[in-house]
Design a protein around this nucleic acid. Sequence first.
DNA 1: CCGGTAATTATGCAAGCGTATAATTTCCAC
DNA 2: GTGGAAATTATACGCTTGCATAATTACCGG
Lengths: 227, 227
Amino acid sequence: MQAYNFHTESGEPMSEPRRSFTREDPDSRRAALIRATLELIAEFGPQAATVRAIAAEAGLTQGMIRHYFSTKEELVNAAYEAHMQAQTEASEASAGGAGTARARLAHFVAGSVTPPVADPRAVSLWAGFIHMIRRDPAMHATHRESYLRYRDLLQGLLSDALAESGRPVPEAEARRLAIACNAVIDGLWLEGGALPEAFGSSELEGIARDSVGAILGLSLLRDEASQ
Amino acid sequence: MQAYNFHTESGEPMSEPRRSFTREDPDSRRAALIRATLELIAEFGPQAATVRAIAAEAGLTQGMIRHYFSTKEELVNAAYEAHMQAQTEASEASAGGAGTARARLAHFVAGSVTPPVADPRAVSLWAGFIHMIRRDPAMHATHRESYLRYRDLLQGLLSDALAESGRPVPEAEARRLAIACNAVIDGLWLEGGALPEAFGSSELEGIARDSVGAILGLSLLRDEASQ
DNA sequence: CCGGTAATTATGCAAGCGTATAATTTCCAC
DNA sequence: GTGGAAATTATACGCTTGCATAATTACCGG
């Protein structure tokens, strides 16, 4: 390291100009720090997300972390919140297409077990936050809210799809089905992320479609999923 | 801390006897260190598993880690291997009962989504190892082997259960079904561990039974699972 | 164009980290 | 009993960590 510590040939330290900088708006600085934090946690784990590493990854100096966040923990919390919000928005966009409820469900399921949602980085990132989620009440609440929102989305989709095919289900049953379908999706997401080389490229997508279909008693067709 | 640093009333350090000890056999010492390592990673994450914390949790001094393992990393690897081996043995014991294949399958599935297999500690422990699994080839190999062994066990059980009910399936199809059932189980394991308060006490067990049943086209009865 | 203010960089600090080594204690062979 | 080897404790070292503060630079309003 020490990319900015120049020395003379004799080894003596040489006075060296400070790195130049430009002032940027606070939001983009915060975003850069959050992005760097998520990148490091996903790729190398929470241990690697030190203030110095985060600053380097963001192309800044470590003082910026304390300038924009009162503590490193606060930055990590902000990063978690930003990540969960992005995920939720992506899910809702993925569920919001046109077509029959069955087609929207198929599309939603397929999107949840293929990149970029399902990939080793995403699983690693999730795992990196688990311990903090268990201990920090605020992070636990964010996690809970995000999970339930995703599951409710799924429950709405499958309720509509079942009603559409003439087999409406009461809400309690829809809840159970949503938990089950969510489990299939999460399980495939997990396995694809933790052991990607063990599966063919679109194998998990097909298995997800068939399994959710079997649980619901619907057939989710391939071409419906990919539209 | 400093439980063994006595001082006089005036605050001066007082020469103090070393803590007494007994010599124990190397295996039990190694086991104690491994147990302490797993406990800390599960409960507080890898960051909390420092040599000092591990030694304290094991009731030893930190020199023992270097005495029984050449490095802390080696201890962590040994702990991971020991954990995975224990899990594999538990799975195989759970699958090895008597009765029809369908009953054994039901029992196996139920055991995988209820404590002690499914609980927040287990999920945390798994999450704590993920990043090392991704980067350390030896740990990756252990993970892969353990996962495939579990899945093969499940595949054997469901193959037998299907054959038993007059609907044998080719191996390629059995593999797909095993991946799917494994996903349901893992997903419920994950959700139950990450958000335990969101589910009723035996709710996940029932959902697992019904979902695996739906995927396989078998009905797995409650009393079959609990025998 | 220039002075002031806030953003940014650079440096310092105490605490904790993993590892190395010295000092002490246990316990078995004889 | 009593050495003596090995297990165990205690301490020290260099490095990294998160956080604090001092020094510098960019940019805006006049």
